[in-house]
């Protein structure tokens, strides 16, 4: 079928339809709005107290000043064989959200490596990242950022 024929048919259709053209039905779907699901109520726990490990921007290396913090956690875990630890990695708000999620995991893994080197079994360590979405301190300057680039120890 040629383009012209298609065009003629389209025009005929429009004329028959009385030149009407209605908005899409997309908008009408909103009228019967289903209940909006609510999730995550039990997972929202405040930042844990206790010592944390802090990092430089876009870095995951452990700075020497924080080695004693990690070694103390390793000593605690060695003395308490029934306990395990979740390492929660975080970033400051700068940079992209998804990259920061990976960076937070890398920070948690850096801490895990030191725990393992100090005798804690890998099976007792879990690493998790929240990226930039769970800041310890709200704020848009280095004083807030430096406290948000961190790993927290959650003893379970």
């Amino acid at each position: 079928m040629t383009k012209l024929n298609l065009f003629a048919m389209a025009v005929a259709g429009l004329v028959l339809a009385g030149c009407s053209s209605t908005p899409t039905e997309e908008g009408t779907k909103t009228t019967a709005a289903p209940a909006v699901p609510v999730v995550g109520a039990g997972a929202d726990r405040a930042s844990v107290a206790g010592e944390k490990v802090y990092f430089d921007f876009d870095r995951a290396e452990i700075k020497a000043e924080f080695m004693p913090v990690i070694k103390a956690q390793a000593a605690y875990l060695t003395a308490n064989a029934s306990k395990s630890v979740a390492l929660e990695g975080h970033c400051d708000e700068r940079g992209t959200r998804e990259y920061n999620l990976s960076l937070g995991e890398r920070r948690a893994q850096s801490v895990a490596d030191v725990l393992k080197a100090n005798g804690v079994a890998a099976s007792r360590i879990k690493s998790v990242s929240f990226g930039e979405d769970r800041p310890a301190v709200e704020g848009n300057d280095e004083s807030a950022w430096s406290k948000n680039r961190r790993v927290e120890f959650v003893i379970q």
Partner: peptide, 10 residues
């Protein structure tokens, strides 16, 4: 579309 007590993204 959804409400959550924990972060959503991407």
């Amino acid at each position: 579309i959804l409400r959550s007590y924990m972060p959503l993204m991407s």
